[in-house]
Design a binder for these strands. Sequence first.
DNA 1: CATGAGAATGTGCGTGCGCACGCATTCAAG
DNA 2: CTTGAATGCGTGCGCACGCACATTCTCATG
Lengths: 146, 146
Amino acid sequence: MSDTGVAAWAALLRVHAALVPQLDRELQAACGLPLTWYDVLLELNSAPGRRLSMGELGAVAVVSRSRVSRVVDQLAADGLVTREANPDDRRSAYATITEAGRARLRAAAPVYLGGIERHFTAQLTAAEAFSVATALGKVLAALDRS
Amino acid sequence: MSDTGVAAWAALLRVHAALVPQLDRELQAACGLPLTWYDVLLELNSAPGRRLSMGELGAVAVVSRSRVSRVVDQLAADGLVTREANPDDRRSAYATITEAGRARLRAAAPVYLGGIERHFTAQLTAAEAFSVATALGKVLAALDRS
DNA sequence: CATGAGAATGTGCGTGCGCACGCATTCAAG
DNA sequence: CTTGAATGCGTGCGCACGCACATTCTCATG
């Protein structure tokens, strides 16, 4: 029945509501790094050329496109990224992660991953974690298609 | 490995970020009801005596305790709940769902559940839905314990 | 070349949200 | 009874977030 489907959705909402503020606080206390910054830096670091345009960043990151502009401003003010113009298309603006940004990301990664491990993964068997990842991956694939 | 655990967490974040605004818009367009209101009304409707104190409501609902106070104000302004004093403890305040509130909830339920079905459950097998629900249930149980 | 449609970005603005605080009340200890 | 700690609640305040719009630029079409 879809009853278990609704239960799964409700559990997802509750886990998100309880865990995101928790991990955010832990990360900010240990590294002075908001979760939003971490997400943006992570995407930039794994991008080809370590840079992305604002639109690409908004599409791939969790935050909205309009918010990306301000977050990049803050990151640039802290020297973690640089704003660069695209000579081929002067409308677009690239955000490139700096070496200082990569250093902050490397310092923050074990804190964030450790928090996920302690509060999330530790409660799951390997099979359950795999099942959750594949199931939610299907949902994401369907959402991208529409 | 915990690699799949991190992948599961990342997928959860993305599904939440993509689906919550979607369902919120659908619900608001069809019933003029924010998702926060729906959640509060749902908890009140399934509570003993159809009423809860602010603290209980903040503990059981997705929204924070401080936010509950303002949401209940808005719901009371629309006649969907009533604020009542507790004669046994004059600090606490009860929120009781009205008949109009129950009617709005009954009208909104098929819209919300239909959205969950179309965007979420439809992509999952019954076994996957069950696995996600139980796995995230374990995480919630561990969070409640701490 | 001229021009209008469409894309990519930045920003003013309103809203939702939680934290920290103050107030009223209850309870326990003396 | 008195009093200090603890509880439950409401609210001022600041921050984060997305929408809608203006701006700048590209490109296809005539």
